[in-house]
Amino acid sequence: MWRWLHPYAKSEATFALNQKLLPWFLIPGLLLTLVGVIWGLAYAPPDYQQGESYRIIFVHVPAAIWSMGFYVSMAIAGLIALVWQIRTAEQAVLAIAPVGAVLTFISLFTGAVWGQPMWGTWWVWDARLTSQLILLFLYLGVMALYVAFEDERAGGKAASILALVGVINIPIIHYSVYWWNTLHQQSTITKVITRFESPSIAPEMLWPLVVNIFAFMGLAAALIIMRLNNELLRREIHRPWAQKILNTGDKENSDAV
């Protein structure tokens, strides 16, 4: 059942697959970003309560969604790395982690910038903000653990284990933080934002948001593939296939990079 996975243990095969996949993420990602951002900033109607400031949602929500989504994908890569002992999967873990951390940072930053005009404060200990902050710590932990090892194989495996332990913990952390937040008196201002969770969001606002969610997935996936490709080439720089790509690449690869 899992035999199709094995060829990709070879860096060369993974690299070839990546090269094929990259344009399918990068080009739609860029196009959708262009469409989504312009639609969201200029054409979506203003919110009747928050005015124009709500337009931050078009970057905030996609970043928040994928910061969690890519953590799960990182853990899946970690599982593959541990179960089938596939090195390229370890490298995938390490390619995903920085991108995921940046997405988490974006969601925190845009949340703070949104919170200032709406709630009058940059930061509240709201359940979602708090669990997002913890998610950032988890990403940083995975990255720090990898860097701490001198042996790259050992570091990759250790980071994979930590990613897996973290993914079991994420739902627990998430719900415990929610529970903690309802236990302590919840500031009424945080309820302003929960309105967006209900499906009652107007379709004129929902559609650009959906476009941006897909756009961010494309962009983030393209960045991850680029990082993974670099990593694959770096570790196999002595091998003929990598040298061939690096030599001929100047013209051919410049559009793919």
């Binding site: 951002v37 900033l41 203003p46 005015g51 124009e52 400031s53 337009r55 931050i56 970057v59 905030h60 970043a63 920085p98 991108v99 940046v102 940072f105 974006i106 930053f109 845009t110 910038v113 949104w114 200032q116 005009p117 962009l219 960045l223 680029m226 990082r227």
Partner: peptide, 23 residues
């Protein structure tokens, strides 16, 4: 942006700056 220009534009700027730097 109806008075919220600083917030909206800084949010979008930082987001795409992050993506740009990664790329």
């Amino acid at each position: 942006m109806g008075g919220y220009g600083v917030y909206v534009w800084s949010a979008f700027f930082v987001t795409f700056l992050c993506f740009g730097l990664l790329a």
